Amino acid sequence: MNQAKYEELPLYTYEELANATDNFQSNKRIGKGGFGPVYKGMLFDGREIAVKRLSNSSTQGIEEFMNEAVLISKLQHRNLVRLLGCCIDREEKMLVYEYMPNKSLDAYIFDANKPSLLDWRRRVIIVESIGRALLYLHRDSRLKIIHRDLKASNILLDEELKPKLSDFGLARIFGGNDDQANTNRVAGT
């Protein structure tokens, strides 16, 4: 792999991510998506991370995976979960994201004990913030991206309950001059 082509995206080794997640122990597992499990970890510098370990059944090649990771890592908006790097070591493909300590919005909406933590003012802030993130993806970023899987479990909450949109696994990237995109497959929920 030509490292110069991808130098803007930090590459982690399998060992670094295994150490960060206690060897991908089940007690470090914080979620599971259609593309594989997600683990909480801590890097040597003390940063908390979320590691998405993509399933081995993925047909995406390394070059395609790296190109997509580089593109996503260039997205910068305060309401998008940041991609910090990736791993393509030992036949593994993993994405490393910033860790969001308050989990996903669905944990608050659908848990009978937690809805009171999200008063109407907080809910309006969440809706406006995710709207701004979608506007950025669809219209204002250099890359035009259609998320295609917007749901409460893909809206993560930081330590202050500020929302960030996550999970670009089903996203569709299209040309900067295009104003519409067609897909041949129904995606998401």
Rank of each mutant, 00 (worst) to 15 (best):
R123K: 14
A20D: 04
T59M: 04
L11W: 05
D106W: 07
L105V: 09
E98T: 03
A69N: 01
M94Y: 08
G41I: 11
I30P: 08
C86T: 10
V70C: 14
K114C: 08
G85A: 05
N23M: 02
P101F: 14
W120G: 00
S104H: 13
F24N: 00
Y12A: 01
R121S: 15
M66R: 12
Y12S: 00
D119E: 05
D89N: 12
E68L: 13
M100R: 10
G36M: 00
V51M: 08
L43M: 11
E16K: 10
L43S: 03
K28L: 13
G34V: 02
L54I: 14
R53G: 00
I88A: 11
L80R: 03
Y14F: 15
L80I: 11
Q25W: 13
N67S: 05
K114T: 04
L71D: 00
M66S: 12
G85H: 07
E68G: 09
I62K: 11
H77I: 12
C87G: 00
V38S: 01
G34A: 10
M100A: 10
R123V: 05
N23K: 09
T13W: 04
R122L: 08
D111V: 06
A112S: 13
S116T: 14
R82D: 07
K103I: 07
Y99E: 03
K52T: 08
V96W: 02
G61C: 03
R82S: 15
R47V: 04
K28E: 12
S57E: 11
V51S: 05
L95E: 08
G46R: 10
S116Y: 13
T21G: 01
I49W: 03
L84R: 12
N102W: 03
E16C: 06
A112M: 09
T21F: 02
G61V: 05
F65R: 04
I88F: 10
H77K: 10
A20G: 07
M100I: 10
L95T: 10
A20L: 07
